[in-house]
Amino acid sequence: MDEHKFSDAEIAGVYRAIAERRDMRHFIDKKIAPNTLEKLLKAAHQAGSVGLMQPWRFIRISDLKLRHAIYQLVEQERQLTAKALGERQDDFMKLKVEGILECAELLIVALPDKREQHIFGRRTLPEMDIASTACAIQNIWLAARAEGLGMGWVSLFDPQQLATLLKMPQGSQPIAILCLGHVEEFYSRPMLELENWAQGHALEDFVSENYWPV
């Protein structure tokens, strides 16, 4: 037996959280306990990061007027995205793409300024700051699912407009709006599959050995 291995129940819990994580858009009116939110943020802060740069910053939106202003930015981009989709415009407009006004907690995840100072692991791949921050976001997602909470990642916004709204310094960049909250139920499959917008593909379509598949 591997002494470093978790128990069977613990292993099952990890894989269950991964399998049942969903990008949630529908929330119910119920607050998140402060200690639970703290646990989720701690989970995010424990993510791996290139060169230990810890490039994530979290802004908790508690001002209702600010929340509505963020919603308006997302709605503006939703309209522009719909137009860019051409013949799929009407179908897109039927989708629920966010839960900003309904969720219990709204978080903005951002990259800080002065990231150019961190060279370790980023000299040829500077975008690893985004990759590291995505790991932190995934940690929140999985921890939230384990806690029975839903999370939705919203990316429909203009980064500069959101940065200005939040009075962020030059060089910083918001990369995600996270909607967190209790839900009536979790989607049985990804919502975009349930809405017939897109279908996921099997793992074997994404794995090859030694070289790029031909």
Rank of each mutant, 00 (worst) to 15 (best):
L37T: 11
L165K: 03
G181E: 08
L41M: 09
Q170T: 13
I59R: 03
M1I: 05
V50E: 14
S188R: 07
T133D: 02
I32D: 07
T164S: 09
C135D: 05
R123E: 15
G51A: 05
K96E: 02
L111N: 12
Q89I: 11
K30M: 05
L194A: 06
A12V: 14
P34F: 12
A19S: 15
Q79M: 03
P34I: 07
S62N: 15
E195A: 14
M24K: 05
Y71V: 03
Q173D: 08
S208G: 02
R122A: 13
I119T: 15
T164W: 09
S172W: 10
F58H: 05
A176T: 15
G48K: 07
A69M: 09
S7N: 04
T81K: 08
L203T: 10
V109R: 03
I28A: 01
K30H: 00
A9D: 15
D129C: 13
Y71I: 05
A84S: 15
D113W: 07
I70Q: 01
V214G: 02
A136D: 01
E20W: 09
A84Q: 05
K167M: 03
A47M: 00
D63V: 14
A82E: 00
S208V: 09
T124E: 11
H4S: 14
Q173A: 12
K96Q: 10
E75P: 01
H4Y: 14
F58K: 03
I177S: 00
G150H: 11
Q89K: 14
V97R: 06
G200I: 14
E38K: 07
H4T: 01
I177W: 03
C135G: 12
R78M: 04
H68G: 06
D90K: 07
I177K: 02
I137G: 06
R67S: 02
A134F: 00
F157M: 04
G13L: 05
A43G: 07
